[in-house]
């Protein structure tokens, strides 16, 4: 089977998201607080998974810009939960060899005075494997 199709099934299974439930209302993208910085937006994630465009998504910086704020998950009228889908794709991406988005030696330069530990642990959890 096509690698993209396999990946598409894998991310749906791991996120518990059924992309076919989407009715294309645009609520997720309307609600996204980080919209301006993202190359692909929540509704596109859903649509692209449905159309097996995983290779494109896996390379996109948008994976690391989702704030995990769950606003789209809370407000989606169809229970599609796009935020969980983004998370599952990001997991696929960082689990690939040498594909960590953040490396420990980068931390020192990024760390500023008073930054809470929470920021670093969360970023590690989001960006690396």
């Amino acid at each position: 089977m096509d690698k993209n199709k396999l990946l598409s099934e894998q991310v749906q299974r791991n996120s518990g998201v059924d992309v076919s439930k989407c009715m294309r209302c645009g609520k997720c993208t309307a609600t996204c607080p980080n919209y301006d910085l993202m190359e692909y937006h929540p509704h596109q994630f859903v649509n692209m998974v449905e159309n097996d465009k995983l290779d494109v998504l896996m390379k996109s910086s948008s994976l690391y810009l989702c704030l995990n704020c769950f606003a789209c998950v809370e407000r989606c009228p169809r229970g599609v939960e796009p935020g969980k889908l983004v998370e599952a794709i990001r997991l696929e991406a960082v689990r690939q060899k040498e594909n960590n988005h953040l490396k420990p030696d980068q931390i020192v330069e990024k760390l500023t005075e008073g930054m809470p530990q929470q920021a670093i642990t969360t970023a590690f959890r989001k960006y690396t494997k």
Binding site: G26, K27, T31, H41, A71
Partner: peptide, 19 residues
Amino acid sequence: GAIGKVVPMSNGNLQIQAS
């Protein structure tokens, strides 16, 4: 598209974020 968030302001106006 849809409205995602509405923020009422003190002057009564509504800031609407939508897609």
